[in-house]
């Protein structure tokens, strides 16, 4: 970006709205500003990866199947910390639900309704976005959530639940207790992770082949380095014995896997909100 002229990508399917915004930007920046226009989800994806932008202006109503927030979530997940912030534009009258959605989606700094759009509001919003971006970008260090689960369907369901709540943290999977310990010790198939920060939270199934969750839990909570990592047991087992022994072995929480996807989304939402926003996690330096 030059000192005063940001590189902007506008994702907007309606040509008239593109022209309107282009004119507003002309009013704000004069001639010579850099605006690229993507008229579809796919085109936007392509352009966002081909070129470095300073800010995205994204229309909420993109096509029949996907929204602007879907696009922002996907790009943000792909690009991670380097992703430019997005300003969500909406023609929809239901400002409260759009606002709620915007706040839940990682990567959105502001949202504007098209009816209130003028050169002043747009100019100010872009200015604030660019200003905050510099502060926010380096501050956020996203912890990885690790899930140990032998059932591939259950892994997929949890992954879907994370996508549903728009969580931007990396989610890694291991398939049994041996895999889990290799991952945590950065050995075997996971040698390449040596030196990387350990996961911030472990979701642990109890019933797994090769080494079950109970044994892995015991091992982890005995290890001076690993035992600081919070472990949430997430299991189908309702056995009283498993409940008590898990807590006795040092599990931080015990949660029974819900049976419906909706309930799973709710559990994932509350669990991640609690551990990532309410709780302070330990920062464990890798060995």
């Amino acid at each position: 970006m030059s000192e005063t002229l940001p590189d902007i990508l506008l994702l907007e399917d309606e040509k008239n709205d593109y022209l309107l915004i282009r004119d507003l930007l002309k009013q704000i920046y004069g001639a010579g500003f850099h605006l690229d226009w993507a008229d579809s989800y796919a085109r936007g994806e392509q352009m966002a990866t081909d070129k470095r932008y300073d800010v995205f202006l994204v229309d909420y109503q993109l096509d029949n199947q996907r929204t602007g927030t879907d696009w922002i979530y996907a790009i943000h997940k792909k690009m991670g910390g380097k992703c430019p912030a997005a300003i969500l534009l909406t023609g929809q009258p239901d400002v409260q639900s759009i606002g709620r959605l915007a706040r839940q989606t990682a990567g959105i700094s502001y949202f504007l309704t098209k009816s209130e759009l003028d050169s002043e509001s747009l100019g100010r919003t872009i200015r604030f976005t660019l200003k905050n971006q510099a502060l926010v970008r380096d501050a956020k260090q996203l912890v990885t959530i690790l899930m140990a689960e032998d059932d591939p369907d259950d892994r997929l369901l949890v992954e879907d639940a994370f996508t549903e709540i728009r969580l931007e943290n990396p989610l890694d999977f291991v398939v049994d207790g041996v895999d889990l310990m290799d991952y945590l010790h950065r050995r075997g198939a996971y040698k390449h992770l040596a030196g990387m920060p350990l996961p911030g939270l472990i979701l642990l199934d109890l019933n797994m082949p090769r080494k079950d969750g109970r044994e892995a839990l015991h091992e982890i909570k005995q290890d001076p380095l690993l035992r600081k990592i919070p472990i949430v047991i997430l299991t189908t087992s309702k056995a009283e014995e498993d409940l008590l022994s898990s807590y006795n072995l040092g599990a931080n929480s015990f949660i029974v896997k819900p049976v419906t996807f909706d309930k799973l989304v709710e559990v994932v939402r509350v669990v991640t909100n609690y551990w990532l926003r309410i709780v302070t996690l330990p920062t464990i330096k890798a060995e």
Partner: peptide, 18 residues
């Protein structure tokens, strides 16, 4: 807000040891 989220987590989602 914290008390609300804490109690929601520990009383509604988590199973506590009896």
């Amino acid at each position: 807000d914290i008390i609300r989220k804490v109690t929601q987590y520990w009383l509604e989602i988590v199973r506590l040891p009896t």
